[in-house]
Amino acid sequence: MSSISTQIKHLLAIATYGLLFAASGSNAEDAGNLYNTRFDINAGLKYFERQCSRCHGFDAKGNDETGAPDLTGRLSRASSDVGIFNIIRTGVPGTAMLPVAADLPDSQVWQLVAYIGSLSTDPANIDLPGSVVAGSRLFANKGDCNSCHMIDGQGGRLGPDLSRVGERRNPEELLTDILDPHQEVAPRWWTMRVTDNEGVTREGLRMNEDSFSLRIMDAESNLWSYPKRQLASIERVEESTMPSYTQTLSDSEVDDLVAYLFSLRKEN
Protein backbone atom coordinates (compact mmCIF):
# COMPACT_ATOMS: atom_id res chain seq x y z
CA MET A 1 0.00 0.00 0.00
CA SER A 2 2.95 2.32 0.03
CA SER A 3 2.39 3.22 -3.60
CA ILE A 4 -0.96 4.81 -3.08
CA SER A 5 0.20 6.50 0.06
CA THR A 6 3.19 8.07 -1.67
CA GLN A 7 1.09 9.04 -4.61
CA ILE A 8 -1.51 10.68 -2.42
CA LYS A 9 1.12 12.60 -0.50
CA HIS A 10 2.56 13.85 -3.76
CA LEU A 11 -0.83 14.89 -5.03
CA LEU A 12 -1.66 16.59 -1.78
CA ALA A 13 1.53 18.57 -1.95
CA ILE A 14 0.74 19.69 -5.47
CA ALA A 15 -2.79 20.61 -4.50
CA THR A 16 -1.64 22.52 -1.49
CA TYR A 17 1.19 24.47 -2.93
CA GLY A 18 0.60 24.75 -6.63
CA LEU A 19 -2.88 24.64 -7.97
CA LEU A 20 -5.03 26.48 -5.48
CA PHE A 21 -7.20 29.27 -6.73
CA ALA A 22 -6.04 30.40 -10.16
CA ALA A 23 -6.91 34.01 -9.62
CA SER A 24 -7.80 36.63 -12.19
CA GLY A 25 -9.20 40.14 -12.13
CA SER A 26 -8.60 42.97 -9.70
CA ASN A 27 -11.50 42.76 -7.30
CA ALA A 28 -10.46 40.64 -4.34
CA GLU A 29 -14.01 39.49 -3.63
CA ASP A 30 -14.41 38.25 -7.17
CA ALA A 31 -10.91 37.07 -7.77
CA GLY A 32 -10.46 34.86 -4.74
CA ASN A 33 -7.17 34.70 -2.97
CA LEU A 34 -4.24 36.36 -4.73
CA TYR A 35 -1.86 35.40 -1.92
CA ASN A 36 -1.66 31.67 -2.24
CA THR A 37 1.92 30.75 -3.07
CA ARG A 38 3.92 28.39 -0.91
CA PHE A 39 5.52 31.46 0.65
CA ASP A 40 2.10 32.89 1.51
CA ILE A 41 0.91 29.63 3.05
CA ASN A 42 4.01 29.49 5.23
CA ALA A 43 3.53 33.11 6.25
CA GLY A 44 -0.08 32.29 7.08
CA LEU A 45 1.06 29.31 9.12
CA LYS A 46 3.40 31.49 11.15
CA TYR A 47 0.68 34.02 11.83
CA PHE A 48 -1.75 31.26 12.72
CA GLU A 49 0.62 29.64 15.19
CA ARG A 50 1.21 32.96 16.89
CA GLN A 51 -2.25 34.51 16.90
CA CYS A 52 -4.79 31.74 16.43
CA SER A 53 -3.40 28.53 17.87
CA ARG A 54 -4.21 29.45 21.47
CA CYS A 55 -7.88 28.75 20.75
CA HIS A 56 -7.88 26.70 17.55
CA GLY A 57 -4.92 24.52 18.52
CA PHE A 58 -1.47 24.21 17.03
CA ASP A 59 -2.89 21.65 14.59
CA ALA A 60 -5.97 23.83 13.84
CA LYS A 61 -8.23 20.98 14.88
CA GLY A 62 -10.18 23.16 17.28
CA ASN A 63 -10.83 22.97 20.98
CA ASP A 64 -14.08 21.98 22.65
CA GLU A 65 -13.14 23.89 25.76
CA THR A 66 -12.70 27.22 24.02
CA GLY A 67 -15.44 26.51 21.52
CA ALA A 68 -12.99 27.16 18.69
CA PRO A 69 -13.96 25.05 15.66
CA ASP A 70 -11.82 22.57 13.72
CA LEU A 71 -10.47 24.41 10.67
CA THR A 72 -9.16 21.38 8.82
CA GLY A 73 -12.42 20.35 7.14
CA ARG A 74 -15.55 22.04 5.91
CA LEU A 75 -16.10 25.28 7.80
CA SER A 76 -19.55 25.88 9.23
CA ARG A 77 -19.45 29.68 9.04
CA ALA A 78 -17.76 30.17 5.67
CA SER A 79 -17.93 28.36 2.36
CA SER A 80 -15.48 30.48 0.39
CA ASP A 81 -12.17 32.27 0.77
CA VAL A 82 -14.00 35.58 0.95
CA GLY A 83 -16.14 34.22 3.77
CA ILE A 84 -13.06 33.13 5.69
CA PHE A 85 -11.43 36.50 5.05
CA ASN A 86 -14.44 38.33 6.43
CA ILE A 87 -14.56 36.23 9.58
CA ILE A 88 -10.89 36.85 10.25
CA ARG A 89 -11.33 40.54 9.55
CA THR A 90 -14.51 41.15 11.53
CA GLY A 91 -14.66 38.29 14.03
CA VAL A 92 -17.80 36.41 15.03
CA PRO A 93 -20.04 38.56 17.26
CA GLY A 94 -21.01 37.02 20.56
CA THR A 95 -18.12 34.56 20.55
CA ALA A 96 -14.50 34.59 21.61
CA MET A 97 -13.53 34.97 17.92
CA LEU A 98 -12.28 38.53 17.86
CA PRO A 99 -11.28 40.42 14.73
CA VAL A 100 -7.60 40.66 13.88
CA ALA A 101 -5.88 43.97 14.51
CA ALA A 102 -7.40 46.68 12.33
CA ASP A 103 -3.98 47.69 11.02
CA LEU A 104 -3.12 44.18 9.84
CA PRO A 105 -2.72 44.47 6.04
CA ASP A 106 -5.23 42.62 3.87
CA SER A 107 -2.35 40.73 2.31
CA GLN A 108 -1.58 39.08 5.64
CA VAL A 109 -5.21 38.16 6.16
CA TRP A 110 -5.21 36.55 2.73
CA GLN A 111 -2.08 34.61 3.64
CA LEU A 112 -3.95 33.30 6.66
CA VAL A 113 -6.86 32.37 4.39
CA ALA A 114 -4.39 30.51 2.16
CA TYR A 115 -3.02 28.60 5.11
CA ILE A 116 -6.51 27.61 6.30
CA GLY A 117 -7.33 26.58 2.76
CA SER A 118 -4.26 24.37 2.71
CA LEU A 119 -5.56 22.42 5.70
CA SER A 120 -8.41 20.87 3.75
CA THR A 121 -8.11 18.85 0.61
CA ASP A 122 -9.90 20.06 -2.49
CA PRO A 123 -11.07 16.98 -4.43
CA ALA A 124 -10.75 18.87 -7.70
CA ASN A 125 -7.00 18.84 -7.23
CA ILE A 126 -6.69 15.14 -6.40
CA ASP A 127 -6.51 12.44 -9.02
CA LEU A 128 -6.93 9.22 -7.10
CA PRO A 129 -6.08 5.89 -8.72
CA GLY A 130 -9.26 4.12 -7.64
CA SER A 131 -12.70 4.06 -9.21
CA VAL A 132 -15.54 5.77 -7.39
CA VAL A 133 -18.12 3.53 -9.05
CA ALA A 134 -16.23 0.35 -8.21
CA GLY A 135 -15.72 1.63 -4.65
CA SER A 136 -19.43 2.24 -4.30
CA ARG A 137 -20.14 -1.37 -5.28
CA LEU A 138 -17.51 -2.66 -2.86
CA PHE A 139 -19.02 -0.60 -0.08
CA ALA A 140 -22.39 -2.28 -0.50
CA ASN A 141 -21.28 -5.77 -1.51
CA LYS A 142 -17.89 -7.37 -0.89
CA GLY A 143 -16.85 -4.88 1.78
CA ASP A 144 -20.18 -5.13 3.54
CA CYS A 145 -19.48 -1.65 4.89
CA ASN A 146 -23.13 -0.63 4.82
CA SER A 147 -24.07 -3.16 7.43
CA CYS A 148 -22.47 -0.82 9.95
CA HIS A 149 -22.17 2.56 8.19
CA MET A 150 -24.94 4.78 6.88
CA ILE A 151 -24.74 6.92 3.75
CA ASP A 152 -27.58 9.28 2.91
CA GLY A 153 -29.96 7.48 5.26
CA GLN A 154 -29.17 3.96 4.04
CA GLY A 155 -27.12 1.45 6.02
CA GLY A 156 -26.31 0.43 9.57
CA ARG A 157 -25.87 2.30 12.81
CA LEU A 158 -22.83 0.61 14.28
CA GLY A 159 -20.24 2.94 12.77
CA PRO A 160 -19.95 6.62 11.85
CA ASP A 161 -22.32 8.05 9.24
CA LEU A 162 -20.13 8.44 6.15
CA SER A 163 -22.43 10.65 4.06
CA ARG A 164 -19.87 13.49 4.12
CA VAL A 165 -16.73 11.66 5.20
CA GLY A 166 -14.77 13.14 2.28
CA GLU A 167 -15.04 16.56 3.91
CA ARG A 168 -13.32 15.56 7.10
CA ARG A 169 -10.89 12.77 6.14
CA ASN A 170 -8.27 13.02 3.42
CA PRO A 171 -7.39 9.98 1.28
CA GLU A 172 -4.40 9.09 3.40
CA GLU A 173 -6.47 9.07 6.56
CA LEU A 174 -9.18 7.02 4.86
CA LEU A 175 -6.56 4.49 3.86
CA THR A 176 -5.46 4.17 7.49
CA ASP A 177 -9.07 3.87 8.61
CA ILE A 178 -9.61 0.92 6.28
CA LEU A 179 -6.34 -0.93 6.87
CA ASP A 180 -5.67 -0.16 10.52
CA PRO A 181 -8.94 0.85 12.18
CA HIS A 182 -7.59 0.14 15.66
CA GLN A 183 -4.92 2.84 15.41
CA GLU A 184 -7.24 5.71 16.31
CA VAL A 185 -10.73 5.13 17.64
CA ALA A 186 -12.71 8.25 18.42
CA PRO A 187 -14.29 8.20 21.91
CA ARG A 188 -17.78 8.12 20.35
CA TRP A 189 -16.93 4.68 18.89
CA TRP A 190 -15.22 3.15 21.87
CA THR A 191 -16.77 -0.13 22.94
CA MET A 192 -17.72 -0.12 26.61
CA ARG A 193 -18.36 -3.19 28.74
CA VAL A 194 -20.35 -2.43 31.86
CA THR A 195 -21.58 -4.56 34.72
CA ASP A 196 -24.33 -3.18 36.89
CA ASN A 197 -24.79 -3.69 40.61
CA GLU A 198 -27.07 -6.65 39.89
CA GLY A 199 -24.28 -8.40 38.02
CA VAL A 200 -25.73 -7.92 34.53
CA THR A 201 -23.06 -7.21 31.89
CA ARG A 202 -23.69 -5.35 28.64
CA GLU A 203 -21.43 -4.20 25.88
CA GLY A 204 -22.03 -1.40 23.44
CA LEU A 205 -20.77 1.66 21.63
CA ARG A 206 -20.14 4.69 23.78
CA MET A 207 -22.86 7.13 22.80
CA ASN A 208 -21.92 9.54 25.55
CA GLU A 209 -20.24 9.50 28.91
CA ASP A 210 -20.00 12.16 31.58
CA SER A 211 -19.07 12.46 35.21
CA PHE A 212 -22.20 10.75 36.53
CA SER A 213 -23.67 8.70 33.68
CA LEU A 214 -22.95 6.56 30.63
CA ARG A 215 -25.07 5.80 27.56
CA ILE A 216 -24.34 2.97 25.16
CA MET A 217 -25.90 1.28 22.13
CA ASP A 218 -25.61 -2.50 21.99
CA ALA A 219 -25.23 -4.64 18.86
CA GLU A 220 -29.03 -4.78 18.43
CA SER A 221 -29.19 -0.96 18.49
CA ASN A 222 -30.78 -0.92 21.93
CA LEU A 223 -29.98 2.23 23.87
CA TRP A 224 -28.99 1.92 27.51
CA SER A 225 -28.47 4.75 29.97
CA TYR A 226 -26.74 4.13 33.31
CA PRO A 227 -26.15 6.29 36.34
CA LYS A 228 -22.56 5.45 37.20
CA ARG A 229 -23.47 4.82 40.81
CA GLN A 230 -25.47 1.81 39.59
CA LEU A 231 -22.47 0.31 37.80
CA ALA A 232 -20.08 -2.03 39.54
CA SER A 233 -17.54 -1.78 36.71
CA ILE A 234 -16.93 0.19 33.52
CA GLU A 235 -14.34 -1.10 31.10
CA ARG A 236 -13.23 0.08 27.69
CA VAL A 237 -12.58 -2.54 25.00
CA GLU A 238 -9.53 -1.12 23.25
CA GLU A 239 -10.09 -2.62 19.78
CA SER A 240 -12.31 -0.96 17.24
CA THR A 241 -15.42 -2.86 16.20
CA MET A 242 -14.37 -2.22 12.61
CA PRO A 243 -12.30 -5.01 11.04
CA SER A 244 -9.12 -4.39 9.08
CA TYR A 245 -9.50 -4.93 5.34
CA THR A 246 -5.85 -5.81 4.80
CA GLN A 247 -6.66 -9.47 4.14
CA THR A 248 -10.13 -8.94 2.69
CA LEU A 249 -9.59 -6.52 -0.16
CA SER A 250 -6.86 -6.25 -2.78
CA ASP A 251 -4.74 -3.13 -3.13
CA SER A 252 -6.77 -1.92 -6.09
CA GLU A 253 -10.02 -2.58 -4.28
CA VAL A 254 -8.81 -0.51 -1.35
CA ASP A 255 -7.94 2.25 -3.85
CA ASP A 256 -11.50 2.06 -5.17
CA LEU A 257 -12.96 2.27 -1.68
CA VAL A 258 -10.78 5.26 -0.81
CA ALA A 259 -11.82 7.00 -4.03
CA TYR A 260 -15.48 6.39 -3.27
CA LEU A 261 -15.31 7.52 0.35
CA PHE A 262 -13.33 10.62 -0.56
CA SER A 263 -16.03 11.53 -3.06
CA LEU A 264 -18.69 11.61 -0.36
CA ARG A 265 -19.44 15.21 0.46
CA LYS A 266 -22.36 17.56 0.61
CA GLU A 267 -22.47 18.55 -3.04
CA ASN A 268 -22.64 14.90 -4.07
Binding site: E49, R50, Q51, R54, G57, F58, D64, P187, E209
Partner: peptide, 29 residues
Protein backbone atom coordinates in the same frame (compact mmCIF):
# COMPACT_ATOMS: atom_id res chain seq x y z
CA UNK B 1 0.47 17.55 25.37
CA UNK B 2 3.08 18.10 22.69
CA UNK B 3 4.88 21.41 23.28
CA UNK B 4 6.33 23.37 20.37
CA UNK B 5 8.84 26.18 20.34
CA UNK B 6 8.87 29.03 17.80
CA UNK B 7 11.05 32.09 17.28
CA UNK B 8 9.14 35.34 17.57
CA UNK B 9 10.08 38.99 17.82
CA UNK B 10 8.24 41.16 20.30
CA UNK B 11 5.78 43.62 18.79
CA UNK B 12 3.74 45.76 21.14
CA UNK B 13 0.15 44.58 21.35
CA UNK B 14 0.83 41.34 19.50
CA UNK B 15 0.90 37.88 20.97
CA UNK B 16 4.31 36.93 22.25
CA UNK B 17 4.19 33.26 23.14
CA UNK B 18 6.99 31.57 21.21
CA UNK B 19 5.17 28.35 20.44
CA UNK B 20 2.13 26.34 21.42
CA UNK B 21 0.74 22.93 22.13
CA UNK B 22 -1.14 20.05 20.56
CA UNK B 23 -3.04 17.19 22.15
CA UNK B 24 -2.21 13.73 20.86
CA UNK B 25 -5.30 12.12 22.30
CA UNK B 26 -8.95 13.13 22.70
CA UNK B 27 -9.77 14.81 26.00
CA UNK B 28 -11.90 11.83 27.03
CA UNK B 29 -8.75 9.73 27.12
Amino acid sequence: QEFFKRDEDYEEGERFTGGGGRYNQPMDA
